[in-house]
Simulated assay, not measured.
Amino acid sequence: MTGPVVVGVDGSASALAAVDAAAREARMRDAELHVIHAFTWPAMHAPPGASPLGPPAGALRESVDRLLAQATAQARNAAPGVKVSRAAIPGEKVTALEAQSRTAQLVVVGHRGSGGFRDVLLGSTAVHLSAHARCPVMVVRGRPDPAGPVAVAVDGSPQGQPAVAFAFAEAALRGADLLTVHAWSTWADHGEHHPGDPVDLVDLIGDAEQLQAQAEQFLAKALSGHRERYPELTVRTRVVRRRTRQALIEVSGSVQLMVVGARGRGGFTGMLMGSVSQAVLHHAWCPVTVVRSSL
């Protein structure tokens, strides 16, 4: 992996938590950390001209410099020795971060910025960037278990393979175990069966244990190529009969990071973000990294 780790800051508590996480990621990767703040004139509650209370540098510049200095100092405190650079970029946040993602190995953002509404679970910047960035995006949220494993959702689809590869590498970098999760369910499990609907798989095969065994074989096959590349990594597998989003959100309560693909086996062609990925981004109890299949 090449390129810097990039973190977007806006002065919010969520963004400062992202700075801590991004600094640690940069240290693990032996990479530079690039702290950026994107701004538009109306979004800054400060006049663009000189401040009557300070030097004639302009209140806007003073505000931006102060914000970046705070974030830079926090990054150096979180990961001493990491090279940290910073930049103020005029323009919209999502546009600036998406441009940065073209040369970054990872972009890190908080789950909700300073412009979000209090009751919103996830900010628009995190949602948009997870769907459009050209590198993996880590959305920092929740309270991760530092002693827990890295978890990854595995559905066996080609679209999900980059996320699996990222999770193996991330677990190795962190010196953590890897928990691979595959959830399977039938139409009856969704509680949406109606007269005239297709026959449920359990009704058809008549053996839930057989379906569970097939799911376990399916997961083992999906992981086979990755295990060989990381022979020292402890890999745990979990196959559960449950709706995928519910299973992943439950798992997120006891791990340090959840990794998902942007769109898996069930997504519609052309969709940038699947419903499972969006649900995990909104409700996970730990940071979530989204890896797009087109990376």
Results as ranks from 00 to 15, higher is better:
Val107Cys: 15
Gly123Val: 12
Arg86Ser: 14
Val120Phe: 13
Gln100Thr: 01
Val107Tyr: 14
His128Val: 14
Ala78Gln: 06
Gly81Ile: 04
Lys93Ser: 08
Ala69His: 01
Glu98Phe: 04
Thr95Phe: 04
Lys93His: 03
Arg134Ser: 14
Asn77Ser: 10
Leu68Asp: 00
Val64Met: 00
Arg102Ala: 13
Gly123Thr: 12
Leu121Trp: 11
Ser130Asn: 05
Leu122Phe: 08
Ala104Ser: 11
Leu129Tyr: 10
Pro90Cys: 07
Val120Gly: 07
Glu92Gly: 06
Ala104Glu: 11
Ser101Ile: 08
Ala69Gln: 01
Arg134Thr: 09
Gly113Gln: 09
Ala133Glu: 09
Ala99Thr: 04
Asp65Cys: 00
Ala73Met: 02
Val127Asn: 03
Thr125Ala: 03
Ala96Trp: 06
Lys83Val: 14
Ala88Trp: 01
Val137Tyr: 05
Thr125Lys: 01
Ala131Asn: 08
Ala71Arg: 00
Ile89Ser: 05
Leu67Ile: 00
Val137Ile: 06
Ala69Trp: 00
Thr95Val: 09
Leu106Arg: 11
Phe117His: 09
Gly110Tyr: 01
Leu97Trp: 09
Ser124Phe: 03
Arg102Met: 04
Gly91Ala: 05
Gly91Asn: 10
Val82Leu: 15
Leu97Asp: 12
Leu68Asn: 02
His111Tyr: 15
Leu106Cys: 15
His128Arg: 10
Gln74Ala: 14
Ala99Leu: 08
Leu97Ala: 04
Gly91Val: 10
Val127Gly: 02
Ala133Asn: 14
Ala96His: 04
Ala88Cys: 07
Leu97Lys: 05
Ala88Val: 01
Gln105His: 10
Leu129Trp: 12
Val82Arg: 10
Arg76Gln: 15
